[in-house]
Design a protein around this nucleic acid. Structure first.
Length: 272
DNA sequence: AATCGTTCCTGATAGC
DNA sequence: TGCTATCAGGAACGAT
């Protein structure tokens, strides 16, 4: 599933390609993807617009358009966004496509159809976007800011890491892996971590996210970049989807449990 | 107020 | 072989 690193890779891939491209056609194949407008109004408003920039906030992709409005896309579980030649065969799960002025298309595919698309005049119209916590890779996200966040939370630390209102962009994969790297049990209460553990966790979060971006994201499932290619970080995962296998640090058997309905993997021996 | 369960959706897999 | 049941999960929403 696309989390911060995957969305970042897609953003970088689309940015150069879409800049100054004009939309010559809009084809809505699954109306349910478009959340804040009726599909005909969405199509009418997108037609003729020019892409000025593409950015990312948390797991949201933000496309700035030439009239000051924004196209906002959240890929959720199985959404894919690709830039491809118009004559390339369409995916079975194509939900939305923009026909560009250079013989290429921007296509949104989504097997499980959880992904969401908005067209807004102001970013604040999307409250979940407006309420996002800090970007973990920005320099103002320090060990101290993580400490402040965790201190106020009685919930399990893994739940807190995945809460988009507290920290933006971390989902199940990276919360699981960061806690493994920091040697912290995912069931620990957030406000009960020691200062040293918080520092270690802060370092682990940034390290994991950065390494995944370098590896072009995790394709355990159906994540693809803007060119339709798989990422490679799945080969570096230490515990995620490795229940029953030996821990690479101590050899103990990796546990698989559920926390708030989400599969969680950890080493019961070295994550205290 | 905080936490839990349900919903959306379809493919992969397990079990009979 | 072929059927059904279960599971996967981000985030909104309803229920407790």
């Amino acid at each position: 599933m696309p989390e911060l690193p995957e969305v970042e890779v897609i953003k970088d891939g689309l940015r150069r390609k879409l800049r100054n491209r004009t939309i010559k056609g809009v084809d809505i194949l699954f109306k349910g993807s478009i959340k804040n407008l009726s599909p005909p109004v969405f199509g009418k408003r997108m037609l003729g617009r020019k892409f000025e920039d593409v950015s990312r906030r948390g797991k949201f992709l933000i496309f700035s358009l030439d009239n000051g409005s924004f196209l906002i896309i959240h890929l959720r579980m199985t959404g894919q966004l690709t830039y491809c030649p118009s004559n390339e065969e369409a995916d079975k799960y194509l939900c939305l496509k923009f026909i560009l002025d250079n013989g290429y298309q921007l296509r949104f595919m989504d097997m499980r159809r959880f992904g969401v698309v908005y067209l807004v005049k102001k970013l604040e119209e999307i409250t979940t976007l407006a309420n996002l916590g800090p970007e973990p890779l920005e320099s103002n996200f320090t060990a101290l800011s993580l400490e402040e966040i965790l201190k106020g939370q009685k919930k399990k630390v893994k739940i807190v890491l995945m809460d988009q209102n507290l920290i933006a962009g971390i989902g199940n994969i990276y919360a699981t892996e960061a806690l493994y790297q920091a040697k912290i049990n995912p069931e620990r209460k957030a406000n009960q971590l020691t200062e040293a553990e918080v520092k270690e966790l802060h370092r682990a979060i940034r390290d994991i996210l950065q390494r995944s971006i370098s590896a072009r994201g995790t394709s355990t499932d159906n994540y693809r970049d803007a060119e339709g290619k798989k990422g490679n970080f799945q080969y570096q995962l230490q515990v995620y989807q490795r229940g029953g296998e030996p821990c690479s640090r101590c050899g103990a058997k990796i546990s698989q449990i559920k926390i708030s309905g989400r599969s969680t993997y950890f080493c019961p021996s070295c994550q205290k």
